[in-house]
Design a protein around this nucleic acid. Structure first.
Lengths: 193, 193
DNA sequence: GGGCCCATGTAATTAGTTACATGATTAT
DNA sequence: ATAATCATGTAACTAATTACATGGGCCC
């Protein structure tokens, strides 16, 4: 499943230009898929070439003209085929966790800074991006709600974990003051949620 | 941050061959980073070329010889520099959620099958892979425990969400029987956890 | 005047996956 | 005998990112 499939999926609901598809992806797929113009425009061109979408230039007042794409019947068939045939992957690639994993090799301030930056980013996604989606909850399909709810659940869990672990973790990284074994054990217990 | 950095990080703790690095990544980074031989071997070659690791061939009885890599001082410096300089990303790319997002375009059985497969995979990672790590909890650094705990928290939250939402979601996808608006509202409330 | 939004696109580069190629030993 | 594990590597390919290139309109 690549950006071509994504575009086809977005176009299955409504005709859109490449630019508008990018906006849609930013609004709705932000927390689980991202794509830039550098992959969207070539994808649309390729979809057109293979007859899965058609394209119409639309002039606008006081705006550059845009190329609006519409999915064809062949496109709908292909979309369903792809979504039925491929087994979907769920890949997390976290340089953040890699850095945490190697925390003992780094200055504690750096670790602190990275945790706080990650917390801020998660918080922003949850409270700005996903909140905006809640506003239009009624207009969403069950699947869109499912994906939204999944994102909300994961971000909430992540923020909770960061909040609970931050203090104890950073204390453990300080080699200067000896850590009470009881406390370290407390860290273990706290990790269990 | 690429596979080169990962290898350097793993070697910062202990000398290892490419094959052993792969095993380590599978055991310990499975839920947030993966790399195959096709990226690990070239990475080690490049690290050696730039003097960040050195390599020694080790003959073994009844086993093929292996090339054990050791990190150099320059390697340790570079590793820290990279981990301090780059701001780490945390990227989720979920074809699973894409498929859920487009669930209304698919047969309900397909959606069911995909949810159940995802559930099984999460369950396996949580109960086999991460459980094995708990066995050696005492030998882990705080950072390794942090990463482990994060993974456990996320997987538990994901499994909880899938478990809670599965029934209601699949019912909503059935267009045959009309859905009681009250129930649909119930789905909304349930999504709020 | 500066910066952002709308709007489309290409080229070079990066990075990683997949498949191929080889081969001994060990366990079932 | 057959599969799995140990062990290394390359070549072709796929896919996406980043940077570049262009240009009008709108808002402060």
């Amino acid at each position: 499943m690549d950006v071509k499939t994504l575009c086809l999926g977005v176009l299955a609901t409504e005709d859109r230009s490449g630019y508008e598809i990018k906006k849609t992806l930013e609004e709705r797929f932000r927390h689980f898929f991202r794509a830039g113009y550098g992959s969207i425009y070539p994808a649309l061109k390729e979809l057109e070439r293979s007859g899965l979408v058609v394209c119409e230039a639309v002039e606008q007042q006081r705006r550059p003209a845009k190329k609006v794409y519409r999915i064809t019947d062949a496109g709908r068939r292909t979309l369903e085929e792809v979504l039925v045939a491929e087994d979907p992957r769920h890949v997390v690639r976290s340089e953040f966790l890699v850095l945490m994993y190697f925390a003992h090799l780094l200055p504690a301030e750096r670790v602190t800074q990275v945790i706080d930056a990650m917390t801020a980013e998660f918080d922003r996604i949850l409270n700005a991006d996903l909140e905006a989606l809640e506003q239009v909850y009624d207009t969403l399909t069950p699947g869109q709600r499912f994906a939204l709810g999944y994102g909300r659940t994961m971000l909430t869990a992540a923020l909770g974990y960061l909040h609970r672990q931050r203090g104890g973790f950073l204390r453990e990284l300080q080699p200067t003051e000896a850590v009470d074994p009881e406390l370290r054990n407390g860290g273990l217990a706290a990790a269990g949620d």
